[in-house]
Design a protein around this nucleic acid. Sequence first.
DNA 1: TCTATAACTTACTTTATGTAACTTAGTTTA
DNA 2: TAAACTAAGTTACATAAAGTAAGTTATAGA
Lengths: 106, 106
Amino acid sequence: MKQPAICPKFEKAISLLSQRWTALVIYQLLSGSQRFSEIQSAIGISGKVLSERLKELEQQEVVKREVIPETPVVIEYSLTEKGKSMEPILRTIENWSQQWVKLESE
Amino acid sequence: MKQPAICPKFEKAISLLSQRWTALVIYQLLSGSQRFSEIQSAIGISGKVLSERLKELEQQEVVKREVIPETPVVIEYSLTEKGKSMEPILRTIENWSQQWVKLESE
DNA sequence: TCTATAACTTACTTTATGTAACTTAGTTTA
DNA sequence: TAAACTAAGTTACATAAAGTAAGTTATAGA
């Protein structure tokens, strides 16, 4: 009765994407590089968790961080190639949601 | 500086999929209807959380529950049409993971 | 010197998840 | 007939993750 184990690469992808906020952060960055505070207000995430997520995403090489020496200093976050390659995932979810998700208000 | 709000249907889809275990449960059911204990051992989720997730997924009409009066009674879970329509999402993640995810062991 | 700003960080509270033992109902087994 | 077994949960308790709001750091302008 042993079942084939779930592919570890798939599992790793799922565990990344199914952390709260991660998918929304990536989705948000699909529209171009943005600053910490922009991402924060766009998706309504707390500074604490956004900071954690961005570090993890940097470490996974999904997001890159760039310091811009303005005044006060500004930090720009953008997607790497790996990050951009996730666009089809987000678009597939987007399409599905338009077809299948019902809101309370409907 | 107001940004366009994120589409509420998309947000709802994301909040469903980014709950821990939800995507894996759906993925598991893509290979056919299964019993509580099969899902549990296949993906390594605790009975408590699996029970919570299955209730939510039933409520969202993604999963359906069927009582089979064997002995002892068996409960079969399977995907509804809405659930099956999520297959492209999982396959897109699966494909991406094969191309981009690196494991520790590599 | 005082105030302002962006990007965090910290301390503390609330919520979610994990673990393991327990429940229920019908069924064998001793 | 009573003890034991099974599937599918549920409960109580412990740990981890997320939310909130105040605080920190560095630079600069009033």
